[in-house]
């Protein structure tokens, strides 16, 4: 992290915060979204179709650093395409692309929940790309402020000591006979945004976050997350999937310091 980048971030923070008072009285409509469609999606056509992708988020974020969002995405029944990728954007965050999720062809991830930071009143967008390249979009407005610069709750020493600790929860099927299963992966990581102030040196803590995380069942990819600073501290993913009969889950995560964290868990038989 060069001094120049830190300074830029400080400037960004300053610019953001001076906008706070204005943001109070305006909606998110003055609008980062068209620019994001250009920059992130090269102006490709996208369709809002709640039958294919929908997004749930609280209108008012109670804790701007931990805003739960849920995405439902699946091709229409009988359609042979699959959801190849979902991009989550928090439009008005300093780094709007919160995460991109890629899915294995047979993963069947139709419901996905995670937690994001929201720095100000903003739209959140989820864009699904089906395997033939068509894009579908869902949008939600969220009121919150300060999620990116809000400091972590607990002391940095404790957070650092636990970095990379993972927990995988496996849930029994909600309706007994369903082929769908549900799991939740939790990873301890401070996800430093680069916008938090160091306690002693008066400088911004450099960004340090998980930038890639892959979950496999056996050898098959369930999902791979490419993330940024807008994913909350202690990244948390809860998702449904279609079991492939493999006996283990394998998780690999790397962060921006090139540290790698791995975890492996036996797949619990359904009904457990």
């Amino acid at each position: 992290m060069t001094q120049a980048i830190r300074l830029t971030m400080a400037a960004v923070l300053l610019a953001l915060t001076t906008q706070l008072a204005i943001a109070e009285t305006t909606t998110a409509k003055d609008d980062a979204w068209p620019g994001l469609v250009t920059d992130v999606f090269q102006d490709r056509k996208m369709t809002a179709d709640p039958a294919i992708i929908s997004l749930e988020a609280p209108y008012r974020a109670e804790d701007a650093a931990i805003v739960p969002i849920a995405i439902n995405a699946a091709p229409p029944p009988g359609d042979s395409r699959y959801v190849a990728r979902i991009t989550v954007l928090v439009d008005n965050n300093p780094s709007p692309v919160a995460a991109t999720f890629e899915f294995g062809p047979k993963a069947g991830v139709s419901h996905l929940e995670t937690r994001v930071r929201v720095n100000q009143y903003t739209n959140i967008h989820a864009v699904a790309e089906l395997s033939d390249g068509t894009l579908y979009v869902a949008e939600k407005f969220v009121k919150a402020s300060g999620g990116c610069s809000a400091p972590a709750l607990k002391d940095a020493a404790e957070a650092a000591a636990n970095v990379g600790v993972m927990k995988l929860k496996q849930f029994p099927p909600k309706d007994g006979g369903s082929t769908l299963r549900e799991a939740q992966l939790m990873v301890r990581h401070p996800q430093n945004s680069g916008m938090q102030m160091d306690q002693m040196s008066h400088t911004y803590i450099p960004p340090w976050f998980i930038d890639e995380l892959a979950i496999h069942q056996g050898d098959d990819l369930l999902l791979k997350v490419t993330g940024g600073i807008s994913l909350s501290e202690d990244p948390n993913l809860r998702f449904t999937y279609i079991p492939n009969g493999a006996t283990t889950f394998n998780v690999t995560a790397t962060d921006t310091e090139q540290k790698t964290y791995k975890g492996s868990w036996p797949v619990q038989p359904s009904g457990s």
Binding site: L20, A21, S149, Q196
Partner: peptide
């Protein structure tokens, strides 16, 4: 130290 600038902007 860690929160002060955040507190200022949140309360402005």
């Amino acid at each position: 130290e860690a929160r002060y600038s955040y507190y200022l902007e949140a309360n402005r």
